[in-house]
Computed example of a mutant assay.
Amino acid sequence: MQPSADRNTTVRTRRRRLLIAAALVVVAGLAVHLLGSGPVADFTGDALYAVLVYLVIAAVFARAASWAIGAATVVVCTLIELFQLTGLPGAWAEAFWPVRLVLGTGFDARDLIAYAVGAAAATVCDLILTRRSRARQAA
Rank of each mutant, 00 (worst) to 15 (best):
M1C: 12
A5L: 09
A5F: 03
N8H: 06
N8D: 14
T9Q: 14
T10Y: 13
T10A: 15
R12W: 10
T13S: 13
T13K: 08
R14D: 15
R16N: 09
R16V: 14
L18E: 13
L18S: 08
L18T: 05
L18D: 13
L19E: 08
L19D: 06
A21L: 14
A21I: 04
A23T: 11
V25K: 08
V26Q: 10
V27H: 07
V27I: 15
L30N: 05
L30Y: 07
A31I: 13
V32L: 09
V32S: 11
V32R: 00
H33A: 14
L35G: 12
G36S: 02
S37V: 09
S37P: 02
P39H: 01
P39D: 11
V40S: 10
D42R: 09
F43E: 01
T44F: 02
A47N: 09
A50D: 02
V53F: 07
Y54V: 04
L55I: 01
L55Q: 03
I57L: 15
A59I: 12
A59V: 10
V60S: 01
F61G: 06
A62E: 02
R63Q: 12
A65D: 08
A65T: 01
S66T: 13
S66Y: 02
A68I: 02
I69C: 08
I69D: 01
I69V: 15
G70Q: 03
G70D: 07
A71T: 10
A72S: 15
A72L: 13
T73S: 06
T73Y: 00
V74A: 11
V76D: 03
V76C: 07
C77L: 05
T78W: 05
L79N: 01
E81T: 01
E81A: 01
L82D: 01
F83C: 08
Q84N: 04
Q84R: 07
L85D: 07
T86P: 05
T86Q: 03
G87T: 04
G87A: 06
G90A: 14
A91M: 05
A91R: 03
A93H: 03
E94Y: 01
A95Y: 07
F96S: 02
W97H: 13
P98H: 08
P98F: 11
P98N: 12
V99Q: 08
L101S: 06
L101H: 00
L101I: 08
G104A: 01
G104I: 03
T105Q: 10
T105F: 02
G106I: 11
G106M: 10
D108C: 04
A109G: 08
A109V: 12
D111Q: 00
D111H: 00
D111V: 01
L112D: 06
I113P: 02
Y115M: 03
G118W: 04
G118D: 05
A119Y: 02
A120T: 12
A121G: 14
A122L: 06
T123P: 09
C125Y: 00
D126R: 00
L127C: 12
I128S: 04
L129Q: 08
L129A: 12
L129M: 12
R131V: 04
A135C: 04
A139T: 10
A139G: 14
